[in-house]
Nucleic acid binder design. Sequence first.
DNA 1: GCCTAGGTCCCGTCG
DNA 2: CGACGGGGCCTAGGC
Lengths: 241, 241
Amino acid sequence: MLDHLLNPTVKDATQFIGRYKSSRVIVIYGQVEATYSGRAAAQLRLMPRLIITKPDGVLMVHEGYREKPVIWNPPGSQLFVSVDGDVLVLRSIRYSPREYVTIRIHKVYMVSSMEIGLTEDFKVIGTEKDVVDAIMANPSLVEDGFKVLSREYETMVGSIDILGEDKLGNLVVVEVKRGEASPEAVHQLKRYVEYIKGKNPGRGVRGILVATGISTSAYRYLKDYGLEFRRYTHANIINYT
Amino acid sequence: MLDHLLNPTVKDATQFIGRYKSSRVIVIYGQVEATYSGRAAAQLRLMPRLIITKPDGVLMVHEGYREKPVIWNPPGSQLFVSVDGDVLVLRSIRYSPREYVTIRIHKVYMVSSMEIGLTEDFKVIGTEKDVVDAIMANPSLVEDGFKVLSREYETMVGSIDILGEDKLGNLVVVEVKRGEASPEAVHQLKRYVEYIKGKNPGRGVRGILVATGISTSAYRYLKDYGLEFRRYTHANIINYT
DNA sequence: GCCTAGGTCCCGTCG
DNA sequence: CGACGGGGCCTAGGC
């Protein structure tokens, strides 16, 4: 189930990685240098680091801090293992966009491997989709008398989360954010409102931003543009999901 | 330098993790269940998984596929280790925003640990900043006769990468993207141009999007708005960085 | 395959 | 400390 080699020879480590790279997760502690080139470029000098590969092609070089790897290639990349003198070489190619990672391991302290699966039905609760779902089920979360006309209404300038109508017959553009709304969210809403206004001359059009909160500068933009903000809390939503 | 325990008792594993959690990277292979709650929520049933902790508070639960952990807490989080019967429990708290990760390890196959550093002077070449630097050094990359007036010019609607002037005395708003420009980039540029026009009535104002490429829909928006596109290649830039 | 938009985004920088 | 915007973003969903 779990295999590992301590201070293996380059040859043994190469064989080990070759055997498991397409079926298991592999973890390597080693003295490592690495380069990346593709859309951008980066380089790492020799140092102890942690390397992880996964059967889907993921390759990551981790350091002692940060959540993200310093150098990596994403799923779909292809991994090649070879030997250059006393150095174990991992080369990874991502094809679209073309990106290359080369890792030279001068000393392998440990290489280990285990078969690990995937939670197929993994689900995160509390995403933007959940909030939109709740509004669809109970439109009054936006405001009293609000009626939904369309979800994911497609326009030339992007897709509107919810397009609806208020009790006075005005069109209402609703933009939903799962957390704190930023200025960018307000600009987005403004764009949609201007588009809908252009398409419906003479008709009243309102824009409502629905989020758990809003930054002060975003709120200033919002007010400048004549848009509205509606706060929701997790408690508002939870009953309708 | 590298320590590890194979199939340790819960007690030994606990002690091991407690000793190293604030100074080293720790890797655990185990039979794991986990929950996350905070801005959102998620849950994982018992399964073999890979767990990594780092001294800066990073905690990650990895599965056999994907680059990103399924459940995690970022740097700055605090890790607590305890025992619940035969189960090793890791609890992690992130304080702002408040988020909790609880990991229950029913079986530890291996726990290992090594001190790993950080590349302090790590640098990625080819970021947006590099492109802007190159234009600052050689404004004609934008167009012949272009003069820079200001970098990161702050406005009410965001900060303009480069504000300049063309040879005819028109104001020129330059928006730089490191890769393929999306519609979002065009909207951003349009916003800035409108703002600058509003502040400089009667003066000619142009908007130029500088990127390695542009999607077809983004190009359509760009033309509709009367904006311009200037392609750059890595080769254009590299001489000026 | 590319395009589009969300993310528990993370991450650095600047106030 | 929060706020803002970039990222080799990654990842899921449409076309």
